[in-house]
Amino acid sequence: EVTIKANLIFANGSTQTAEFKGTFEKATSEAYAYADTLKKDNGEYTVDVADKGYTLNIKFAG
């Protein structure tokens, strides 16, 4: 089991951190699915992958 950390960075400057656990593939998939649910209210997003994929910096356009 691994932990994927998602740093969520919103257009208004606020930030939030979420963690997803499971296999690497499952946790990564859940992180992207979570970002997709936030897209409606926060706009499109870009992802900067860090720490060999264990950290995702997800920035929303607003």
Rank of each mutant, 00 (worst) to 15 (best):
E1C: 05
V2G: 04
V2C: 04
V2K: 05
T3K: 08
T3Q: 09
T3D: 04
T3N: 06
I4T: 01
I4N: 00
I4S: 00
K5C: 05
A6L: 11
A6Y: 01
A6K: 00
A6R: 00
N7I: 15
L8C: 04
L8A: 04
L8V: 10
L8Q: 01
L8D: 00
L8F: 15
L8H: 02
L8W: 05
L8T: 03
I9W: 15
I9F: 13
I9P: 00
I9K: 12
I9M: 11
I9S: 11
I9R: 10
F10H: 03
F10T: 03
F10V: 03
F10L: 08
F10C: 03
A11W: 09
A11L: 10
A11N: 10
N12T: 10
N12G: 08
N12A: 06
N12D: 11
N12F: 08
N12Y: 07
N12Q: 07
G13T: 07
G13V: 05
S14V: 11
S14Y: 13
T15G: 07
T15H: 12
T15V: 11
T15I: 14
T15M: 12
T15C: 05
Q16N: 09
T17F: 12
T17V: 14
T17K: 11
T17I: 13
T17P: 06
A18S: 14
A18I: 15
E19Y: 14
E19I: 13
F20N: 00
F20T: 01
F20A: 01
F20G: 00
K21D: 06
K21L: 14
K21W: 11
G22K: 01
G22F: 02
T23F: 08
T23R: 04
T23E: 15
T23L: 08
F24S: 04
F24V: 10
E25C: 06
E25L: 06
K26R: 05
K26H: 15
K26C: 05
K26T: 15
A27H: 00
A27N: 01
A27R: 00
T28D: 01
T28C: 04
S29T: 12
E30I: 08
E30P: 00
A31L: 08
A31W: 02
A31Y: 01
Y32H: 07
Y32C: 03
Y32W: 10
A33D: 06
A33E: 13
A33N: 08
Y34C: 04
Y34M: 10
Y34V: 05
Y34Q: 03
Y34D: 01
A35R: 00
A35N: 01
A35L: 12
A35E: 00
A35Y: 02
A35I: 10
D36T: 07
T37C: 05
T37H: 10
T37K: 08
L38N: 03
L38T: 02
L38G: 02
L38P: 00
K39F: 05
K39T: 07
K39I: 08
K40W: 08
K40L: 12
K40D: 07
K40M: 12
D41F: 10
D41Y: 09
N42V: 05
N42W: 15
N42M: 13
G43S: 03
G43V: 02
G43Q: 03
G43F: 03
G43C: 03
G43W: 03
G43A: 03
G43D: 03
G43H: 02
E44Q: 10
Y45I: 03
Y45G: 01
Y45E: 00
Y45F: 09
T46M: 11
T46G: 05
T46D: 07
T46A: 09
V47N: 02
V47E: 02
V47C: 04
V47T: 09
D48T: 12
D48K: 08
D48C: 06
D48M: 12
D48R: 11
A50Y: 14
A50Q: 14
A50H: 15
A50N: 08
D51K: 04
K52L: 12
G53M: 04
G53D: 03
G53F: 03
G53C: 03
Y54F: 14
Y54A: 06
T55K: 06
L56I: 12
L56K: 01
I58R: 00
I58C: 03
I58Q: 00
I58T: 01
K59Q: 08
K59E: 07
K59R: 14
F60W: 06
F60R: 00
A61F: 12
A61K: 14
A61N: 14
G62K: 08
G62Y: 11
G62L: 09
